[in-house]
């Protein structure tokens, strides 16, 4: 069992957990994730290891409540435990000094890009960050990102915070601004966002890394459920990734694959809502 040491609500649907996982904590690298299972009857889901404290033996997870499992997880309190946590999984992000990089986070994807941005900054890069969300509440980790970035631009679809619009608008300006000298882009967020960013940066010939949130069961290369097509060949997101060259990813296929269980997930979610008391009653 993996005890929740600290819980903090970042937005009405986004929660940060610090969880006791002493084996994983000292081994976490930027880009790694864990597979967790909340309860015995639960499913295994991948969550990015946002941070860790090797001395305290803790890891940090940030979760957006969107379906049954994530809602159940977000309803847990300090002192409660997760049934299972295994990690660190995936190939860590190769952190190198590119000179200047752009880090783009969309929604809860900002939680995934944060450890990478920090790693890039520690490696000596100038880090220019863009974080976006549908609305102001869904823009998270603004202060944390500010601490590891030369500049942070926020965008919201509805204009409730920062610039109104999507993340590709300021990114285009950054790429056009030759004085910044951006030589790599890291983009993590919803698949359509990563696709749009990759399409944009392709025109500039700037290498772009994306992190693919494919459907996984074991997370160790055993099931092949997370297979993605990259440069025309099959890769497993859990072991070959989760990061890939955004210019070579078949996003359309992955978007379709990630809808495989939409109906069943809705069913499970409805049932969950019917059997639990409304939280905000």
């Amino acid at each position: 069992m993996f005890r929740i040491i600290q819980k903090e609500r970042l937005a009405s649907t986004i929660t940060k957990f610090v969880v006791h996982a002493p084996y994983i904590a000292p081994k976490r690298r930027p880009g790694n994730f864990a597979i967790i299972r909340v309860v015995e009857s639960g499913e295994r889901i991948p969550l990015t290891l946002v941070d860790s404290d090797p001395v305290a033996g803790t890891i940090t997870l940030i979760v957006q409540a969107i379906g049954k499992t994530t809602q159940l997880l977000c309803s847990l309190q300090e002192g409660d435990s997760l049934r299972d946590v295994v990690g660190p999984l995936g190939t860590p992000t190769p952190i190198e000094n590119h000179g200047s990089v752009a880090c783009v986070g969309g929604g809860v994807g900002t939680a995934v890009i944060y450890p990478i941005a920090r790693g890039l900054r520690e490696a000596g890069n100038n880090v220019y960050s863009i974080i976006g969300g549908r609305t102001s509440e869904l823009v998270i980790l603004e202060q944390e990102m500010a601490r590891v970035s030369n500049r942070v631009i926020t965008t919201t679809d509805d204009g409730s915070l920062g610039r109104k619009g999507i993340v590709t608008d300021p990114l285009r300006e950054m790429l056009d601004d030759r004085s910044l000298g951006i030589s790599a882009v890291y983009a993590i967020g919803p698949l359509p966002m990563m696709k749009a960013v990759s399409n944009l940066t392709r025109n500039y010939g700037v290498p772009t890394f994306v992190s693919l949130n494919a459907i996984m069961v074991d997370g160790t290369g055993m099931c092949g459920g997370c297979r993605v097509t990259v440069d025309g060949t099959m890769k497993f997101a859990c072991v070959d990734g989760p990061e890939f060259d955004g210019h070579k990813v078949d996003f359309d296929e992955l978007i379709m694959r990630n809808r495989s269980y939409t109906e069943l997930e809705r069913l499970a979610h409805q049932r969950y809502l019917q059997t639990t008391l409304p939280e905000h009653a």
Partner: peptide, 12 residues
């Protein structure tokens, strides 16, 4: 994951 007992078990 006992998907044959979905939705009692969560894995579809």
């Amino acid at each position: 994951m006992k998907a044959y007992q979905f939705p009692d078990y969560d894995t579809p």
